[in-house]
Design a protein around this nucleic acid. Structure first.
Lengths: 187, 187
DNA sequence: AAGGCTATTTGACAAATGTCAAACACTTTC
DNA sequence: GAAAGTGTTTGACATTTGTCAAATAGCCTT
């Protein structure tokens, strides 16, 4: 279980004063496993930090769905598409375990960024890191083979292997569950 | 040939005063086709808007390279990884035509964002849109077949078909040139 | 321990994509 | 207009990956 301060420090080290202001605007919320924190087609208005638990975002319906992202303790969770543009989101975010979050409304965050330059820096750092995550993901998908992507995932995000079923990991890598099973069997 | 004002307005409509301040900090630069605007392993310190021409970013060496992104008039060009983190970049950005850019040093942009809240908003908008580009790209790569991805590319970015060779388009889509040629022949 | 549930593995086969080589089309240059 | 160069298409075949179905493994509940 991470503290809010640990989550925030993981993004950008705010000075004490701003950190205190900022922290006062979060509330703690918990949901059981399988809850859809954010649903496709709905607008979401908050961003969350994961204090405890794990979750993933996925796109598509039952007949075909792909995992976009896995998250766990310390990670930022939101549907940026919805929050930024005020549009309906395209993906679902589902808890794979019971989770506790620190939640802040995007509107509130926005006001804080205007009021406190340091919190603006915080948000900027957050966006920049998120940007790099996706850019990197594209590079991985285009450049490396399925086996290489799997190896890198096991190295960089071992929590994924512990906490998510094979089918979801396979769709994250862009392959089927059977192919991933065979990749694993090879070694 | 787009004006600087057109490029900036395409991102976020700045008030006149801030726009004037901002525009004064850009300089116009031109390079011939095939120039590497940004090279793998180098640090880049500027961001550019494309006034005229087209270009692409790619990752990897001669024996295997993949196209990450295509750009043309009005687009923002930079290696965010390098500019944000002050690290060496991973990709090359190469002009496919003679290009003219509006260039601003990242340091200067940074100072302006601190000085003018509206320019801060501008940068924020820029990052957010860039973020969505890559998130969307991941969704496309995971969810759609090669043929669907090709169709969507032709609809959304027809300039790519006019200005880039098939091999580069194929690597953007994550397939070989021969496969793309066959996809085209089908219809 | 038995039964039911879910996740994973395996097998047989089909479909998609890659590889390599050659042919073709189109420009550019002399 | 011939030659060289580049980009694209096509063919034959190999490899990878997907699909569907069944078997196996593991876990939870009773």
């Amino acid at each position: 279980m991470l503290s809010l301060e640990q989550c925030l420090d993981g993004v950008y080290k705010l000075p004490q004063k701003e950190k205190a202001e900022f922290m006062a605007c979060f509330k703690t919320v918990s949901f059981p496993a399988k809850t859809l924190l954010i649903k496709e087609g709905e607008e979401s208005k908050s961003i969350y930090f994961v204090a405890r638990g794990s979750l993933r975002s996925y796109y598509g319906q039952k007949d075909k769905e792909v995992t976009l992202w896995f998250g766990h303790e310390g990670d930022l969770v939101t549907c940026f598409r919805s929050v930024i543009k005020g549009e309906k989101g395209l993906e679902n975010i589902q808890l794979s375990e019971d989770c506790t979050f620190y939640e802040i409304a995007y509107d509130v965050l926005n006001k804080l960024t205007q009021q406190f330059p340091e919190i603006n820096q915080f948000y900027r750092k957050l966006m920049e890191e998120s940007y790099l995550y996706w850019e990197n993901r594209v590079m991985m998908l285009l450049f490396y083979t399925a086996k290489e992507r799997y190896t890198k995932l096991t190295e960089r995000s071992p929590f994924v292997l512990q906490r998510f079923p094979l089918s979801q990991i396979a769709s994250y890598l862009g392959i089927t569950q059977e192919t991933l099973s065979r990749i694993r069997a090879e070694k």
